[in-house]
């Protein structure tokens, strides 16, 4: 793992394990994840559904629900260990130092209260302000996230907003106490494609302005390419690759990341059919010996089936693949998809 800049990270997750207690014993959902996010940095976390992306985010905000539990490792926020805090201490942390953005803006807001009321109550929970001051701040926040006529819209109910506008309100709610870190869990997935880019732009701009670091959980490589500084790729509860966004997209080291890149459709290249990664991610109950990806990996060899690789530093990033350690040149990518993605958005 590379240390980003020389400043101490906002978020430092070290060897995090999450288990689900079931009748048949504990299920390992997250199996030793370590990652850091520097102040103001946007870390994209990608992977298939069920890889553990959202779960990691949930654990960081302390909202993991029974039967899920953190079974090992530590989470540090600005150097302070937070995974062992009490419920009430965690509660004070949420919204104040860690903001959260959820996937579906249509269901994230309480339908019975005006957006203003929801903003004001959040602001007043965390900041010493009276009602008028909080209202003023709420209006400013709504203006910041690009909501037209915030003075009137503040008194409207969520159903009077479109999906994109609601997600802007959600962003305002996440940022209303100026947290140092925002966990954005699939913030654009539920939105129209035309709105996705706007939301990403707003999120990116605000976090730059406020110096907020973001953990951007998504399965959309386009969003990552557009917004993230670094990328962490997850597979079956582990990190398989971490690195600067351009490196990962253009020169993916791990065969799984390469597969992800190849499966992105593009109109610039006329292909007969989309590339896909054969097979599917293993269930938590049946994670194979060795590298979890080996049954689907086109380059798997003997060692992959018996020994599990950890992240191995290479260039500016790291990949959990024996190919990397053997110094084997990563196989060429099938298409130029990755290049177009980066060129297009940078």
């Amino acid at each position: 793992m590379t240390e980003h800049n020389n400043t101490s990270p906002v978020l430092d997750v070290h060897d995090l394990h999450i288990e689900f207690d079931t009748r048949h014993g504990a299920l390992k959902a997250i199996d030793g994840i370590s990652l850091q996010i520097a102040p103001g940095e946007i870390l994209g976390v990608v992977g298939e559904s069920g890889a553990g992306k959202s779960l990691t985010g949930t654990a960081i905000t302390g909202l993991l629900e029974s039967p899920g539990r953190i079974s090992g490792g530590e989470i540090r926020l600005e150097g302070q260990r937070i995974d062992n805090l009490s419920q009430d201490e965690l509660r004070r942390l949420r919204g104040r130092r860690i903001g959260a953005i959820f996937q579906d803006p249509l269901t994230s807001l309480n339908p019975l209260y005006t957006v203003g009321r929801q903003l004001i109550e959040t602001i007043r929970t965390h900041l010493p302000m009276n009602r008028a001051q909080a209202r003023q701040r709420a209006i400013e926040l709504l203006a910041e996230v690009g909501l037209p006529a915030p003075e009137t819209r503040i008194d409207q109910y969520p159903h009077q907003f479109s999906g994109g506008m609601r997600q802007r309100v959600v962003i305002a709610l996440a940022l209303c106490a100026d947290p140092k870190l925002v966990i954005a869990d699939e913030p654009t997935t539920a939105l129209d494609v035309s709105v996705q880019a706007q939301i990403i732009t707003v999120l990116k701009r605000l976090c730059r302005e406020h110096g907020t670091a973001v953990m951007l959980v998504t399965h959309d490589m386009g969003v990552i390419a557009e917004a993230a500084d670094r990328v962490a790729v997850m597979y079956a509860g582990r990190l398989v690759e971490v690195g600067p966004v351009a490196d990962v997209i253009k020169h993916a080291k791990h065969p799984y990341t390469q597969g992800l890149m190849n499966s992105i459709p593009t109109i610039l290249h006329d292909v007969e059919r989309l590339e896909q990664i054969e097979g599917s991610m293993p269930r938590l109950t049946a994670i194979p010996e060795g590298c979890a990806f080996n049954p689907r990996c086109p380059h798997a060899f003997e060692r992959c089936r018996v020994e599990r690789p950890d992240l191995i530093a290479v260039d500016e990033g790291a990949a959990a693949c024996w190919l990397v350690e053997e110094g084997a040149t990563p196989p060429p990518q099938a298409r130029a998809t990755a290049d177009t993605l980066v060129d297009h958005h940078d």
């Binding site: 909202l63 919204g95 959260a100 959820f102 269901t107 807001l109 109550e121 929970t125 965390h126 996440a174």
Partner: peptide, 11 residues
């Protein structure tokens, strides 16, 4: 979701 989000806001 809005209850989970309310918790995430630290209420």
């Amino acid at each position: 979701d809005y209850i989970r989000f309310a918790r995430a806001r630290g209420l």
